[in-house]
Write a protein that binds this DNA or RNA. Sequence first.
DNA 1: CGGCTTTGACCTGCGC
DNA 2: GCGCAGGTCAAAGCCG
Length: 314
Amino acid sequence: MNSTCVDTSLGFDLNLNPYGHIDEKPPKREIQGDYIDMERKLSLKGEAIVLAEELDRLMTENKKLTGMLASVCMNYKVLQSQLEDLMSRNSENEAAKSRKRKAENDDNSNIHGLNVGNTESSSSDDDSSKKPRETTIKKKVSKVFVRTNKSDKSLIVKDGYQWRKYGQKVTRDNPSPRAYYKCSFAPSCPVKKKVQRSAEDQSLLIATYEGEHNHPQPSQVDSSVGSSQAVKLGSLSGSASISPSRPTVTLDLIQPGTYDDEPKKSVQEIDSPAFQQFLAEQMACSLARDPSFKATLAAAISGRILDHPQREKW
DNA sequence: CGGCTTTGACCTGCGC
DNA sequence: GCGCAGGTCAAAGCCG
């Protein structure tokens, strides 16, 4: 996610004093000497001064807010880098675990991310009159975390592709079963998907994708309405599938207050305004938890408060 | 009736 | 070689 700092400069150009400087006098009118007119002039001048002061105050506030936003952006970037660091460490641990068990012999193909679904027999395959196992061929592996409701027991992760479930197992280190899916859109598509609830967080579904689709996303083919979603999802999952070292994306698909009516939130909802709003709230929440952000905010607020009485006595 | 899910059996790799 | 655990197969059942 690119953090683009929006220029919040409000551009206050209220044109409060069309005559340039506040002391600059307006064109003379011929009714000088009239007492009422003098009074009006004086009050107008005072009003102009007040407005100019207000303008000055707003500009200062604008500057402060811009500064605050810059600091928020900076904090966000720091948090993002920390998160990435944490995620990379986690996936390294995971990779080390799996290496123990698998004793991989396929590092070469991993480097290039090729050989996806390639079941051609190699020289060592001569003795395999059995089915050619794809487990010996390294594929692109990506993980996607999908947050669902704890009460939702289904192991369904909607990602725009068609999947056929071909197995389910209860694994040793996790009480919740793991579901196995194959891509059913194209018979030749080698992509497999494993879906299991996180042992630590039952509301978190972990979908592990193996391989790459050799066909476009079904929803992309279908309709123009679905295509916009499909494109977005495509880019999303793309960002999650580059390398096994940092291949994770978390989708928090719970929308407050709406889940009970619609238990299976799909990934497609990331495009909805409600999701965007929720995302914004989550970001705000994350930022609020950051001590440095709090300090910056407190400094800005206290500065604002201390500033205020000075202005009020004008 | 075709496609999908379920589920027990089977296969394979690994550690001991 | 044996046992264990993960992964896959395929028959049976379900559903639209």
